[in-house]
Design a protein around this nucleic acid. Structure first.
Lengths: 148, 148
DNA sequence: CTAAATGCAAAACGTTTGCATATAG
DNA sequence: CTATATGCAAACGTTTTGCATTTAG
């Protein structure tokens, strides 16, 4: 069963309806699996396929998909949210290096995180959301550019 | 030398001017040292002291203070930024547990973070900003409320 | 004296909402 | 057939900007 089919059946098994708009959005998300898309970016791609679609629908759909745990949502310093497929990709935990200059996201994973999550859980009774920790800073590329 | 005096002299030694508005903002920040204030919250307190002040000035001042490394800036999922004094408080690194339900911030510190920062730095050439890592999730209080 | 800072209002930004119309189940 | 979803435009809350006026250095 492909990722696409998997998501489609998740929607069908939920109380939400499977509309053509939602199908198209799933398709785009699967095709851009490796990227972290914002609502606006998704909308732009969508416009090329179906110009009638409204931006509000994109936001509503992303909300629903987040609710259905199809998507993970990462939020920036500038108030922009980016979305990423949750299914299949993470067999374990994964976390994000967020560059505050170019806004690129790198997904990383390491045992250290497990220790950290356990520590936070034990000491603070804090339940880490979706095992997602955000590390803000400057990425390799932007560091190099600074030194030109 | 008090935290207040320290900040004032940081401003004086910079290219920015020390205005009465900026002095008042420093005073409020020092008095609320233990809190993470938003621009709006700071503006509200400020209005009680000097009703003439404009919200734009608050934003501009917070930007400058961030630039001067007087403040650290933590941003939420809902696009609201909160500010916190950087000076004196952290002899070492410190990080944040951000509750996505009540939006409370807990400041934590632990050796595990140092290892993590080092790892990210070595493996990804990623320079962690102000040694600040954001861990999103649900805090103790909100967890309890869910179970009522 | 002059460059920088201020207050105000208007604009910008991503996002959400109200509503009439369309449609999946 | 009916509850849900859609597209549009208007509203939202936070933040930024333009501009004439004031002020710190």
């Amino acid at each position: 069963m492909s990722i696409y089919d998997n998501i489609i059946s998740t929607i069908q098994q939920s109380s939400y309806k499977l509309t053509p708009q939602r199908e198209t959005i799933v398709k785009i998300l699967v095709e851009n699996e490796s990227e972290h898309l914002s609502a606006e970016e998704l909308y732009f791609i969508l416009k090329g396929i179906n110009p009638e679609i409204g931006l509000a629908t994109v936001y509503r759909t992303l909300d629903i998909f987040y609710d259905l745990k199809i998507l993970e949502k990462i939020t920036f310093g500038n108030g922009i949210s980016k979305y990423h497929l949750r299914q299949k990709l993470d067999n374990g935990t994964h976390h994000h290096l967020i560059c505050t200059k170019c806004h690129n996201i790198t997904t990383i994973s390491n045992v250290i995180f497990n220790k950290l999550i356990q520590y936070v859980n034990n000491e603070y009774n804090f339940e880490v959301q979706d095992d997602t920790i955000a590390i803000y800073g400057t990425c390799k590329n932007c560091m190099n550019e600074e030194n030109i």
